[in-house]
Design a protein around this nucleic acid. Sequence first.
RNA 1: GCGAGAGUGGCGGAACUGGCAGACGCGCGAGACUUAGGAUCUCGUGGGAAACCGUGGGGGUUCGAGUCCCUCCUCUCGCACCA
Length: 878
Amino acid sequence: MAEQHYDHQHTEAKWQRAWAEQETFCVTEDPARPKYYCLEMFPYPSGRIHMGHVRNYAIGDVVARYKRMRGFNVLHPMGWDAFGLPAENAAIERGVHPQIWTQENIAYMRAQLKRMGLSYDWSREIATCEPDYYKWNQWLFLEFYKKKLAYKKHSAVNWCPSCETVLANEQVEEGRCWRCDSGVIQKELEQWFFRITQYAEELLKGCDQLTGWPARVLTMQRNWIGKSVGVEVDFPLAEPAPGLPAIRIFTTRQDTIFGATFMSLAPESPLVERLIAGRPEAVAVREFVARVSRQEKAVRTAADREKEGIFTGAYAINPFTQAKIPIWVANFVLYEYGTGAIMAVPAHDQRDFEFATRYGIPVRLVIQKPDGTLAEPLPAAYEDEAGALVNSAQFSGLGVAEAKAKLADYVEAKGFGTRTVNYRLRDWGVSRQRYWGTPIPIIYCQACGTVPVPAADLPVTLPRDVPLTGKGSSPLARAAQFVQVKCPKCGGAGRRETDTMDTFVDSSWYFLRYCSPREGARPLDPAKAGHWMAVDQYIGGIEHAVLHLLYARFFTRAVRDLGLIKVDEPFLSLLTQGMVCKETYRCEEHGWLFQDDLAGSEQDGWRCKQCGRPAEKGRVEKMSKSKKNVVDPERLIATYGADTARLFSLFAAPPEKDLEWSDAGVEGASRFLGRVWRLVHDMTPIIAGFATEAPAASVAASSRASSVTIALRRLTHRTIRKVTEDIEREFQFNTAIAALMEFVNGLYKFTAETREAGKAGEAAALREAVDALVLLLSPFAPHIAEELWAATGHATSLARERWPLYDAALIQEDVLTIPVQVNGKVRSKLSVPAAWSKEQVVAASQSDVKVREWIQGKTVKNIVYVDKRLVNIVVGDA
RNA sequence: GCGAGAGUGGCGGAACUGGCAGACGCGCGAGACUUAGGAUCUCGUGGGAAACCGUGGGGGUUCGAGUCCCUCCUCUCGCACCA
């Protein structure tokens, strides 16, 4: 028999080879066709792909293949986010050079991705650790430096006192060093920054344009940028210090300024020292400041951290009440935000309230609730903005919103201060004291100072042999050959910057590089980037909702302002796929257990293979090595094939929701493909005589409109519509695949009947159905689809075929089933011609035997008719 | 605490604008073909003996509510001293 068993290994390898040899998915700019840029977040080459990758890239590949079939010229590239810490750890732990380790991983993972049958243009592959790529990181850095978008300043870094090293944020786990578990402290270092805050307002406003992004990602971006509109106000000192007549604060609640009964400074503020100099309080205050800044990050940032502070001995004057108010230092005031000093209004700010209560500072009510029920002493701060001002001189009686405006006017008119906007977004610190990253292209010269490496000297390549110990600061600092350099300006002795760039820099513009990946003179070819950008559909994990996406949006604007591209936003539409999860198992003796470490069964209970104790079934959690609930895609693909792996991960849940792993679900996906395989091969002899071209025409020509033909064609065209709409509507692949399953179930019924009849018209309609099935299946399971396409007599690759279109006329039913309700409960179902009018359907429903039982002896009060859908007869007692 | 999202059969999940709840898959049951089948094909499968009851609980709007409104509960994910 022709069908035999479906051999996925052979078939998948065969088509992967064919696609590669024919360069099926290589693209160039084509003015004749609309472009479509489909992009999935590129992976870190950690060694092997995981199920999250499978899902991410399966989703992206369906989009790319579907859009291609819809006539778009699709750019679908892939590459490697290849710089990063794990490579350095491998070097420290196993003595493998990061470059070797990375290259080997890339080679392995590339082969894995190829085995998934993903329709990438591999000729555009990039790896960020290659000098050809990171050269342009450096080039962009220098352009930013020219525009003062890159600058250097002192800043606090995470420091592990035991390892004596700087830690990246992601190496700090709950305030502790990931390696030795010591408490991480903050240490001041000179670091490079990108001035992302210059674009804060634009990045915020841009969110409104991103209609193709999930609302929650936009919310997270907006919150991260954190715009606050308020005023800065000077509070004069009661006894001005030399050169320090006043302390400037920032507030968004200027309406409460009459309630400011003290001030608080951040412990880090340099003003503290100037205020306490020569006072008896100085010693105690210094001690307090030292204690707070010595505190570990985890302790300092804990949510329930107790508010504490110390009085400086100095007083300020509230410019509105003229009251003399004490100046404190408080642990909860942030030096980095606003002016590092606040006016404290205990009646209307919970933090100030707690502080005031603890230290016996007066609480002054200045906003009264609309119902007037607030009375002193307050049990807690009233922070709500509903209400009116009281105890606020000429401003008393104003509503909060109005008072904010009037007080801001007043502050400006009197010269007390100015309206100000603050963002919680901070400039992006890009210096990393690591080896495996892009060297920052800067030289320090005794005579000339900070000197950028001339563009002609790029790239500054990473020296190959550098001892990596994980101790101390930048590894590059120990590479004398690298550090010692002539100053490009004066030729004198210079010293290279030894920090490397944050790897987020690499991923902030890689999507631009894909447009012209081998461009040698610039980071990108403006004509090509102009053609392809922006990315039409970006797909990746929600974990990048803030940082990566925000940095990429910033880079896009910065590169735009260098004149290289024209777009403002990099990603028009964003799909954040859910996590891949699986149940966990735990043994009280041996901890988390792999599936393979379990004995027993679901019914009889699971046991630990090692000790025989019962294994407790835990909750469904994100697949992770630590929980031992991972599934290796390689095994999955080897056993079931890439098509099954893809189909399962697309069918089990909608893309943006979490997906729960299920062995049975994989079986189901595999079984479905087997069903398709057998069905199509069963039909091949029947449909062989019918042209592969224009099946619809041959159906029409030979059809004598038998009921079988009509029903078959209706099923075919309904399926085309359903699958198309589900893909177009938010990529609902799970329901699209369900529709294909229904199609196949339906076709199985037709084959039995049709083989009996064997009429020409029906065979032609079957040809149409089978062709449609294979085409509709192809984005999801491309290998088996190609094989079936060829088996049914087609000479060309499916990948270049057009997506089928449905004929609306064929979808129409001629007989409808209308449920008839009595008082909202279904009592009967009517089969009526689709052409019937309301009156005809209503009349038929009232004469229906089953309906009559329910309306007999009752008064018909109302009849609701929903066109072509339902009748509801409302009756009451006679 | 604040913000967002979600609670539907034994399980994963369907149900676009209010209109037959449970598509599709898994699991389970029955049958067919078989030396055999954990393969394949067909049929059935929310609960209940039934009237009826069923989309986290309670209330409301409506001829009609999984869907809209109010309220409460639970879970998940973000942000958590940003003045």
